[in-house]
Design a protein around this nucleic acid. Structure first.
Lengths: 198, 198, 198, 198
DNA sequence: AATGAATGAGATTTCATTCAT
DNA sequence: AATGAATGAAATCTCATTCAT
């Protein structure tokens, strides 16, 4: 049954790392082949080309974030706790593998246009969390789209700040502070007293 | 000293727009020449090359932000008012010409490494504002680097959200809300009662 | 001797069709494998490679034409009848499977150099028919090489005209007309009164 | 005003020759660049790519044939004379530059689909000549499409025969013989007595 | 000052063929 | 006998930059 495909993961991992380190356009197919210990042509068995590879990586991981959020939503936590868990989960994820986060941030300007609201969309999920919290009276009526962006902005910029050395250490240690800020911004009542696991 | 260099401006403007629309590497010298009504060779009269052009645009506008902040700092406003004016100024600037903001966001990953702390650096300036507010007791002791990033994150993600259609209308209308959030996050006391100009 | 090699036929047929439809170089081994329901590697069990496949197909069918002509020659028909039977046979063959004719026309420029005069060579056979008809006094002395080409030209171009939609219907219906033209061109006396079988 | 384009003709000529000598797919851009004394990139200033170059060459010369025929048609010769002049003109043209003829024959299978009946189309022009000769009573009623193909077939195969060494010498010396054949095939009455210039 | 043809170096991509399974 | 992942060598094409005009 032919050789088993051994190299696909190696290629995708090498690509992910190189894209973050040198930029997508700064990375050539040859670079990827070299780092993954494969010849250039091998890439084309698994992806139509470089664009396709970038796209595949983006959607794979972008939708992975949606899955992460989706599974947290399944727990029916109250809003405060959900946000706390969410921030913690994201930062823990980041600390385990910062490349994925950095990659998403790097390429989103090119690819976010192609994201569908009805697919696996982490931004849309967070927005729905906000909407239902507002409907439940857990947070006041507000421009939930805007607030969603503010929360995302704080989380993402923390990652960016870490990338450029302005924010130190594992991000997980900032989870509580940033979750607090998210709740504050959302107007989520007595957030300071919320019971924090950990 | 003779007539002003009209071509130079046309080239830089065309480049700025194209970079935002198609990405830096997706834009060729030919594209830029075409849109600015100049031939390829002529571009080299004003810039050493494409890299130089990108760099020049980035630093010109990045430092422009620093100048904006710097001149606000000269007024010796109290912290609350300074932040409010700052957010308002940035969003007004964005509404006048969103391309500049989008361009900065687009290329910062490539070029931020080259930014010096001691040069005209808007992030550094905001950080100093935070530091001195903390020294003055206007805000509590905190991880000011982190808070700086959170504030930047909220402002930048609002721009991104606008770019992708999640945040509507001129951003200026959100100034007060987002300034409030910045002050909240910074722990700037009774921010709600701050006197708002306008 | 065991079961017949079904795959080999499937491969050759798929190749023949694809070569005609997309050109030889426009057809990849993968294309052939796909259409014949075989994998790429399997093709190499039956042929040394793509070149070998093209060559094999060409000679198989080109020599097939020679066999067709050869068997007609065995009947010792008079010249007029031989030509009529020949044209009829060729067009009947075409109508049964136009791909073969089209394929020969397509690749002859590449491979005709390799054809040997002393092998199974339909052009050479027709030339010999002309030569012996001239020797017998069935046709006048003439540049038989040239006349041979003229006859071939009429037959082949009819096929080409059919391929591009200028000549309609099954070619067999034009057999008599074109045989007449061949005889005329060869100066074969009272060709119009020749007895036509059918 | 920039360098004058010196190399365009050299590129097209080199391409024409190489295509005939080694086949279109057997000729690489590098081959063309080498023979025309230019770097590979230069080709792309004048043509979008190899396909575009082949297409341009084909239509340029194919339409050139139409112009040749068109200008002969302007003389309002009687049918017999027109055909004689036509064959003579074509073969003279061939003898001056056999590459063009060979090239057309080589690539027509790929490109004839794209030829339009209402454009500059030599086949269509010859067909119209036949139609109007039939309307004038210069030739009998017949399947003019088919006869057109037969005449083309004789002319083209003569060229092919020359290419493969079966037909000797300058083709012009065969003009009269082949024009006679064309007239015979078309049923153009007392063709033998037609006055031949020369 | 300007032009745009040409360069030159490299990028992506294709694909016949091989070979571990 | 068959598979199809991987190779390796080329091919096409792109494009920032140079330079004759």
């Amino acid at each position: 049954m032919g050789r088993p495909p051994m190299k696909r993961d190696a290629i995708e991992r090498a690509a992910l790392e190189l894209f973050v380190e040198k930029g997508v356009d700064g990375t050539s197919i040859r670079d990827i082949a070299e780092r993954s210990g494969v010849t250039e042509g091998a890439l084309y068995r698994h992806h139509k080309g470089k664009d396709d590879l970038v796209r595949a990586l983006f959607f794979e991981h972008y939708e992975g974030f949606a899955d992460l959020i989706g599974s947290l939503m399944g727990n029916n936590y109250p809003f405060n706790q959900l946000i706390r868990e969410l921030v913690e989960t994201l930062f823990t994820f980041h600390d385990k593998d910062p490349y994925i986060f950095d990659f998403i941030i790097l390429v989103r300007h090119k690819l976010l246009d192609e994201v569908r609201k009805d697919g696996k969309n982490p931004v849309e999920l967070l927005y729905r969390i906000m909407e239902s919290a507002a409907a439940n009276g857990e947070i006041p009526e507000q421009d939930t789209q805007l607030t969603t962006q503010l929360m995302i902005g704080m989380v993402m910029q923390t990652v960016v700040g870490h990338h450029f050395g302005r924010v130190k250490g594992p991000l997980r240690q900032h989870s509580q502070r940033i979750a607090d800020c998210c709740l504050m911004v959302a107007g989520a009542g007595d957030f300071a007293n919320a019971e924090v696991e950990e």
